[in-house]
Write a protein that binds this DNA or RNA. Structure first.
Lengths: 191, 191
DNA sequence: ACCTGAACACCGTTCAAGT
DNA sequence: ACCTGAACACCGTTCAAGT
């Protein structure tokens, strides 16, 4: 008797995977390296995650949920003008992307069939953006405006952490330019 | 004597890799599947590419060069107003991304250490964008403006092909909104 | 000069057997 | 109920041997 007590957990496994991802890239996230990091043998992981694809999906979900908490905390003063709130959200997302660049690049990426954060987590993370665009352009135009802002911020930070800006110049300035232009332009368009 | 004549080529290998990538995703691009598709055994590939990472880099380069040709061909009438040229470039990029969604998502992505298209190919592909932003906002502000446009278009198409827009609504409209907003907003800001 | 078969280390995954 | 060792198919890569 005395069945084996859990020596690890799903949360610890996901955290280990995220650490390995940020440290050494996605190809370094193997069942063996993750298992070693949480102190078990590879087969034991299958008691906590279905397979590697499910582990990556859980990693994406974890990242999405953390981002959702960060953005919700940043956007806690709806009395501010929407442009100010938007700049704060964008800045927080960029900081998040710099803290977890590889996990952030996976937020909206194609990770194989059915491998992405569930709609609930994604919806929750994007909610602050939609709330701000609602204040900015009204409820009917809020979704496309949020998509535009998200696409820009995600594309920019993904390119940045991949080292895709290789022509010199001030990268910070370009990010601020994008957010400012979109904030003002969307407001002007969305009467 | 009569040393073995090449039964395949680097170009054929890259093309096979791209086909496999678009058909079944990056994890389906193995040395074995690529070799089978070009009609050789896996070890033969190493006479043409250093390793799998180099093959993926060559794939990214090939994609970047093709995009460069497409964009250069689209932007062949510098007499048009920059907003029109910009819309044409953006539309061509989106078409390209829909034709080769997985390869396009790799254009500016982190594919491992040193695995991305060389600066020359990337610079050539982005040249039409910089030329248009030069016409739009002047030479000093052209680079950040081009970065903003590229980040938006790349982020948007990557999200789109990954299936990240899951809240309904008109995705085409959102793309047009982004390009219009940026074209007008950047011009207004870049006197 | 390129191709192949054989070989190796590694990876994801399964499963019977332990506690 | 979770853990492990052993096993399997597969993958990237090397290399000696073919032509």
């Amino acid at each position: 008797m005395s069945p084996a007590r859990a020596r690890t957990s799903r949360a610890a496994i996901v955290a280990a995977a995220r650490d390995l991802l940020e440290a050494d890239g996605l190809e370094a996230v193997t069942m063996a390296t993750v298992a070693a990091r949480v102190g078990v043998k590879p087969p034991s992981l299958y008691k906590h995650v279905r397979d590697r694809a499910a582990l990556l999906a859980a990693l994406a979900t974890d990242t999405t949920e953390e981002l959702g908490r960060v953005l919700a905390q940043v956007d806690d003063s709806p009395a501010e003008p929407p442009e100010i709130r938007l700049r704060a959200l964008a800045g927080a997302f960029r900081d998040f992307a710099r803290r977890s660049p590889r996990a952030s690049a996976m937020l909206f990426a194609d990770l194989g069939p059915g491998v992405h954060a569930p709609v609930e987590a994604a919806g929750l993370a994007v909610r602050p953006v939609i709330e701000v665009t609602t204040a900015l352009v009204g409820p009917t135009a809020a979704l496309p405006a949020a998509r535009v802002l998200t696409a820009f911020a995600y594309g920019f930070t993904s390119m940045e952490s991949a080292g895709a800006f290789r022509l010199g110049g001030d990268v910070d300035e370009a990010f601020r330019l994008g957010i400012s232009t979109l904030a003002e332009g969307l407001r002007a368009a969305g009467h």
